[in-house]
Design a protein around this nucleic acid. Structure first.
Ligand code: MN
Ligand code: MN
Length: 284
DNA sequence: ATGGGCA
DNA sequence: TGCCCATGACATGGT
DNA sequence: ACCATG
């Protein structure tokens, strides 16, 4: 029915909202068909909150021992750690719900599928505002225009936090380094043209603009939350695909939650054409 | 969340 | 049996 | 080599 065993289903995950682990499992079970296209064939990094959002959460890449039958894993080198990691591979309802059972609230996936890990099929820009969503919205609109100037079409979604994610679906071909380099060029141009709004400076103390354009989500082995991922924040927010005409400093991104997402998704599916609009990066 | 050690 | 404990990420760029 | 960052 759910697709996997959920232990401690009545454990409060969002005590203030009265949401339990079972509520989370049911949400993912209902929207599995919507999130799985962005998880299928991708290594998943777990961000586990086994005691709910009030206790500590932690990242885990290595798959736990004794996985339920039918959960695929893939061994991927982690050069900087000098070892190999066995990741859980996303793509099925059973895998998704097993991740929930491990206490994963947010899902994190790589930009390349495991059959060609070094050929990303999206380019991601992670807009992280230090102040508020309005800044991220302004930055996203400028990024959209910049991508158009480069002949590219971006897709936008809320991150589930205060920021926005802009993805460009790619025809596979360019390798990881080329994709990241391209993203870095775009980000630098934007930060140079709008130094009061956007920065590419990784060090918080050195930033002079509110919106950090995080392009490192495109690096090898790094991850980003896919559309429809829940986040471990108050109200159980959901990363929600948007139409560009919804992106405005006045939009309130916290309206998209476990409670409201399904209604919203029935009304609008702004990313439904995503994988039908794969693009090739210009060589400029 | 899970598994091992130990009283 | 039950309680306690350990365990759980990695890539990057700048200094 | 280390560290801040996401
Ligand atoms: Mn972000
Ligand atoms: Mn970020």
């Amino acid at each position: 029915m759910l697709g996997a065993v959920i232990t401690n289903p009545s454990k409060p995950f969002w005590p203030d909202e009265g949401l339990t682990k079972l509520d989370l499992a049911q949400f993912y079970a209902h929207i599995a068909g919507d999130i799985l296209p962005w998880m299928k064939g991708r290594a998943v990094t777990m961000e586990r909150c086994p005691e709910g959002i009030r206790k500590s959460c932690f990242f885990q890449k290595q798959a736990p021992a004794n996985l339920p039958p039918g959960i695929d894993t893939v061994r991927i080198p982690a050069p900087s750690a000098g070892r190999d990691v066995d990741y859980i591979v996303g793509g099925t309802r059973k895998t998704l719900l097993t991740l929930v059972n491990f206490g994963c609230i947010a899902m994190h996936v790589m930009n390349g599928r495991i059959d060609q890990l070094d050929a990303p099929d999206w380019l991601a820009f992670d807009l992280d505002p230090a102040d508020n969503f309005a800044s991220a919205a302004r930055a996203a609109l400028l990024l959209r225009q910049k991508l158009e100037d480069h002949g590219l079409e971006g897709y936008v979604k809320t991150s589930g936090g205060r920021g926005l994610h802009v993805f460009v679906p790619l025809r596979r071909g360019a390798d990881q380094d080329a994709v990241r380099a391209y993203a870095a060029v775009i980000a630098h141009e934007l930060a140079t043209e709008h130094p009061k709004l956007m920065t590419v400076e990784a060090r918080k103390a050195k930033r002079k603009a509110p919106v950090y354009v995080d392009v490192m989500r495109n690096a090898f082995g790094q991850t980003i939350v896919p559309p429809f991922s829940v986040r471990w924040r108050p109200k159980a927010p959901v990363s929600m695909p948007l139409d560009w005409d919804e992106v405005s400093p006045r939009l309130e991104p916290t309206v998209f939650t476990i409670k409201t997402a399904e209604r919203r998704m029935a009304a609008k599916a702004p990313w439904s054409s995503f994988f039908g609009h794969r693009q090739t990066l210009p060589r400029d």
